[in-house]
């Protein structure tokens, strides 16, 4: 018998611990405990709060119209009127960055929500039912995983047409297989455990076993993966828009803004810098959160 901890099997228990703590302390206290674990966790939470705030209120609070050109002030450097300067059509870059959060980040949330639902459903069915169902579902999953992710997304987006809805479809097609694989692995490990056997023994239906006993215990790695993927999804959305496959002008999506700015970066550094900074901070924020959560759920690195 090995003395090494079996991390795959411990995670459900760890999440159980976290859930118990959340229930015992309340969500706010849990957030405080999480924040106290590392200063980077504080930074991650602040960044994410800032961008979530912009998703909700960015458009309403923008000081200028983010879409309407005012070409008389084109490529105006940062000033007291235009804090982040203006673009080649005289639009306020601060207003566009603020309004753009709901496209760049909002689209990422939608993509991952759909990918999560599809991936969890496929992974859970494959893992729990096994046999032929597992084989068929996993080969379909392999089919999607066989292509390089961004190339597949570009191909889908280019085929369907250039707009944000098709970016959602393209990136969802890229992300769901990862969740299916992850959840299947978790389900395979958990379904043989004693508490699941016990549930079956007392007559729980397969649906109840799955929904009440297995799925909740697969969520820890999924949540960690989800937080890290938000950053990548934002980047991928911006990447497709940068290539002209996503948001179309005049939508102030960050990738579209960076694409438009690359021609002017020699004369107007502010144009490319601020949407780029927003993108960077969003990705870093979610990556730090993902790392923080992983450490928090991992008893080996958790501080008490």
């Amino acid at each position: 018998m090995t003395a090494e901890p079996q991390t795959t099997e411990q995670r459900p228990l760890v999440l159980g611990l976290a859930e118990r703590e959340v229930r015992r302390q309340g969500p706010l206290a849990w957030v405080v405990a999480f924040a106290r674990q590392s200063p980077l966790n504080v930074l991650a939470l602040l960044l994410i709060l800032l961008f979530l705030f912009l998703v909700a209120f960015g458009s309403a609070l923008a000081p200028h119209d983010p879409v309407k050109p005012n070409i008389q002030v084109k490529l105006h450097p940062p000033s007291s009127t235009y804090w982040f300067g203006t673009d080649e059509l005289g639009r306020d870059i601060l207003s566009r960055v603020m309004s753009g959060a709901k496209y760049s980040l909002g689209i990422a949330f939608i993509i991952l929500s759909i990918a999560l639902v599809v991936g969890v459903l496929v992974g859970a069915l494959a893992g729990y039912l096994g046999g032929l169902v597992d084989e068929v579902l996993m080969r379909i999953t392999d089919l999607f995983l066989a292509f390089p992710a961004l190339i597949l997304a570009m191909a889908i987006a280019a085929t369907l047409g250039r707009n944000l809805q098709n970016v959602v479809i393209a990136l969802t097609a890229v992300y769901w297989p990862w969740y299916a694989r992850l959840v299947r692995g978790q389900v395979l490990a958990i379904k043989e455990r004693e508490f699941v056997e016990a549930a079956r023994a007392v007559g729980a239906t397969p649906e109840r076993v799955m929904l009440r006993h297995i799925l909740p215990n697969t969520m820890a790695p999924v949540i960690v993966q989800l937080t890290i993927d938000v950053g990548y999804a934002v980047l991928a959305t911006a990447g497709l828009s940068f290539l002209g496959l996503g948001a179309q002008p005049p939508l102030p999506e960050w990738g579209t803004m960076i694409a438009g700015a690359r021609t002017f970066f020699r004369e107007a550094w502010w144009y490319i810098s601020f949407p780029g900074l927003a993108l960077t901070l969003t990705v870093v924020g979610f990556n730090l959160l993902g790392d923080g959560l992983r450490d928090y759920f991992d008893p080996r690195s958790r501080r008490h």
Partner: peptide, 23 residues
């Protein structure tokens, strides 16, 4: 791209939507 967006903005003022397609 800049011209297209100026045209789009003018049409928006009279209630017409112009969808820009970069290819």
């Amino acid at each position: 791209a800049a011209m297209a967006q100026l045209f789009q903005a003018n049409l928006a003022q009279i209630g017409i939507t112009l969808e820009l397609q970069q290819v």
